[in-house]
Design a protein around this nucleic acid. Sequence first.
DNA 1: ACTGGCGGGACGTCCCGTTGAT
DNA 2: ATCAACGGGACGTCCCGCCAGT
Lengths: 183, 183, 183, 183
Amino acid sequence: VPKVSDAHLEARREQILDGARRAFSRYGYGGATIARLEEETGLSRGAIFNYFENKWGLFAAIAERDGSRLRELAVEQGLDALVHEVAAENPAWLGVHLEALNVIRTDPRIREATLQEDEGSAELLHWIEESQREGRMRADVAARDLARFLDVVLNGMAIRVTLGLPLPIEPLLRLVHEGIDAK
Amino acid sequence: VPKVSDAHLEARREQILDGARRAFSRYGYGGATIARLEEETGLSRGAIFNYFENKWGLFAAIAERDGSRLRELAVEQGLDALVHEVAAENPAWLGVHLEALNVIRTDPRIREATLQEDEGSAELLHWIEESQREGRMRADVAARDLARFLDVVLNGMAIRVTLGLPLPIEPLLRLVHEGIDAK
Amino acid sequence: VPKVSDAHLEARREQILDGARRAFSRYGYGGATIARLEEETGLSRGAIFNYFENKWGLFAAIAERDGSRLRELAVEQGLDALVHEVAAENPAWLGVHLEALNVIRTDPRIREATLQEDEGSAELLHWIEESQREGRMRADVAARDLARFLDVVLNGMAIRVTLGLPLPIEPLLRLVHEGIDAK
Amino acid sequence: VPKVSDAHLEARREQILDGARRAFSRYGYGGATIARLEEETGLSRGAIFNYFENKWGLFAAIAERDGSRLRELAVEQGLDALVHEVAAENPAWLGVHLEALNVIRTDPRIREATLQEDEGSAELLHWIEESQREGRMRADVAARDLARFLDVVLNGMAIRVTLGLPLPIEPLLRLVHEGIDAK
DNA sequence: ACTGGCGGGACGTCCCGTTGAT
DNA sequence: ATCAACGGGACGTCCCGCCAGT
């Protein structure tokens, strides 16, 4: 018989995830010390590590969700809405997404482990293929390459947003939709 | 009185910068421990800290050079040549460029210090304006916005390259030049 | 007002002592974490600390019983039967006995507290003196010294048994008897 | 080119070994915290772990030497001299010997790793066999069993000595000799 | 009576940068 | 100019025991 309700447990878990997400986003994985995780979650190490194996387990739980959210949201609500929202809010999961890429890039062990896996979500690809069939996206470029282009743009955009640099949303979307060269 | 020639001193300094660049690129700032810097440079702590104040000073010296190289090279040799070269070589300075952005993003003190500064190089802007005047780039979008779009694309591309993910150079360049929507 | 019978309480207490004895014997005092005590007893922290002040109190309760069992059993059932039994079973209390000696030896506070006390059980001494009077043990060596010799042999034997090293029972008993028996 | 002489390095290493030996002997492996190792060696963590991989590496280096010294000294200087010396001095290596046995007994990983190895030194066995051939030790008991008997006695004696309990040297040697000497 | 969520002290380890020796 | 021994701060983790909850 658990001491507290499952709802409470779940709420605590979310509380930890939310606080840790902020900490990881703001300070990066290495910069998010346990002390900062305590501050940001409002809980002690004892509490945090009661829900997660260790710091890496906590980050992994967050990164797994947030790491692909950029592409998922593009599919769900469309490119334009995504860009508008992200640019306006600079959500913490955007920082976690970038931080996850950092860790993959710089930690030798993690790098080997994760790069084996599938690149990107298949859903983005499906969405593009469907858009091509419906005539909304150009079909003379392979869907896979369109997906990679979008990945490039979204990540590049994420960098500017998380750095707090100005992002000209409308012109950028226009360029993405049309191209930069003079006609 | 120096025992060795100035040329020797300069060579040693470059030796350190080169080795450290590899280390910072591969492991990130935090992951590049002094021990790894020693390995990669082939010199000892004493030598390294004789030329640079501390680890941060060494990184700053490298990052200052490499941080803007992406944009500079775009101006110097054109977008296409840059993309081809970067994708093929994955140069160490590319990793340093991304790592510099990481540090700016995650280290509170650095963040405040650097974001005050001018955003990006003025040279990129000049080059774009010139291209617009010469009719090679579209003029119905502000040069500043074109520059930011290029920044987005180049950084996004850098992420893929440094992660070792496939980058479809020709299609990507085509999309950048034209746009993704069906005509 | 207790909700359960005294018999139940006593049974629970024994359950805890038994499980904890196994844990202390296997892992030592420091290695027997509360988590392992929970596993081994099948009860939770709350239950354990409801019956015992703290981890040390639990160990002390066990060690007090088991610490002198070696000598007690020698008196009760004779040396030969004891050696046979111990070598065959490697009982948990044997490990606790050794672990208690360790703790006394290495914990400064415990050391001072326990070494004041009487060395060994008086019963062993009485038994030896009686054996001497009855002509079963040699009388040309002081009973106190015979007791200490037996203590040495029993502890040394305990080390081999708990380590799982082979113990040649019959030859060993023969050598001991040739030392202590009356001619 | 080393900064300091090899003699200095070797002296430092011995200084660390000596201090750590005292700490391990007095407090046991777990009780010998890094802080206590610093106190006892008079050096900092930086110095200690410059010479040894980690705490376990330091202990292993000491234990490997001291773990078998009891049997070695028995061979080298004879049983009687050994017992006299050990009882009078309670040398730190005696505590390390016992502590090594503790660790082997209680640490699951160490246990598996070490119990595979050969039991005891072959030298003790050779010495006994030679003594048997020369008529100084009884030959009607297998040398291997005599060795194990001696192991039992020496370890049991070590416990009493390290605990600070009185050890009646002459009577004890007399009893042991009546067991092992040739008639 | 019993559970287990949680706080927080202490420990081993990592690693930066100083310093004194070549 | 270069080296490597060394001091010491900070971090992640372990884990004891309290107490709120049932």
